[in-house]
């Protein structure tokens, strides 16, 4: 079992996409992350697991730019990256799907897809003007490319099913040049059938060269979809193991006992 404690051991694909080193983050006197180092490779689906309060959410927030670490460095594709905001992360090709999906319920699909990144031109060089038709067209093209089918795009997403909303949220992330998608409990609110659809979508996207870092409590999903599993406990990284060389029991034991 020694060899599995190995961020040094590259998985299939090999080169490092996102490398976090010695990440420390405290909230008040509470140390949420205690020097965590993690390396996500290109073309890999990495699962991030751990008990409640292990520091998963904090780590995810830091990698996605929602929080800034107290200490530690992040390298993206080998280059030192200063991620101060979700915008910075997005510019580096890192996008995050949050548990609540980050959708505006009263907005339709194109409005959500382009949320915060609205396309506009300047009229007379100064006055911005939304390119609404173009946003609708590009949303259609994007959904077609991802093989996501939706009955209608021009209704509020609050009228849609959980799986459809998830698909909107994921396609939203893929606008632009995205290399890594971070997901916080992506299947938590979905039924079995819809959850499977989202897993299929993740697998399809990973075949197109997109890496995933997925936080999940669902061991079945973790085992079925990931290439490697990273385990956190009390703000420390317990270890990173290749999924095919481990079992659910091993991982559960790492989560509970904090060792391999």
């Amino acid at each position: 079992m020694d060899q599995v404690l190995a961020p040094s051991r590259p998985a299939a694909g090999g080169t490092s996409l996102l490398k976090a080193s010695g990440i420390v983050k405290s909230f008040g006197g509470n140390r949420a992350l205690n020097g965590v180092s993690l390396d996500v490779h290109e073309n890999e689906i990495m699962a991030l697991v751990g008990d409640n309060g292990a520091g998963k959410s904090t780590l995810v927030k830091i990698l996605s730019g929602a929080e800034v670490p107290d200490e530690g460095t992040i390298h993206v594709s080998g280059r030192l990256a200063a991620i101060q905001s979700p915008h910075d992360a997005h510019d580096l090709g890192i996008a995050t799907l949050h548990q609540n999906l980050g959708l505006v319920d009263c907005f339709d699909v194109p409005q959500n897809v382009f949320l915060g990144r609205e396309l506009s031109t300047k009229i007379l060089g100064v006055l911005p003007l939304l390119r609404r038709a173009e946003m609708v067209e590009r949303t259609k093209a994007l959904l077609r490319e991802l093989d996501i089918r939706m009955p209608y795009l021009d209704r509020p997403v609050s009228t849609m099913s959980g799986g459809q909303r998830q698909a909107v949220a994921i396609s939203r992330l893929l606008l632009g040049d995205i290399k890594l998608i971070i997901m916080d409990e992506p299947m938590a609110a979905l039924g079995v059938h819809e959850g499977q659809k989202v897993l299929d979508l993740i697998q399809r996207l990973s075949l197109r060269g997109i890496s995933f870092l997925i936080v999940s409590h669902n061991m079945e999903h973790v085992m079925s979809i990931s290439n490697r599993v990273a385990v956190l406990k009390n703000g420390n990284l317990v270890g990173v193991v290749p999924t095919e060389r481990t079992t659910r029991q091993d991982i559960t034991s790492m989560i509970i006992h904090g060792r391999v």
Partner: peptide, 25 residues
């Protein structure tokens, strides 16, 4: 309200302030 990114973000903010913040607004 209808034709500028600013206006759309005003609506977004009212619709879901957390999502808006996460979207970098």
């Amino acid at each position: 309200l209808n034709w500028t990114p600013f206006g759309r973000r005003i609506y977004a903010l009212g619709g879901n302030i957390v999502a808006s913040r996460l979207a970098g607004i």
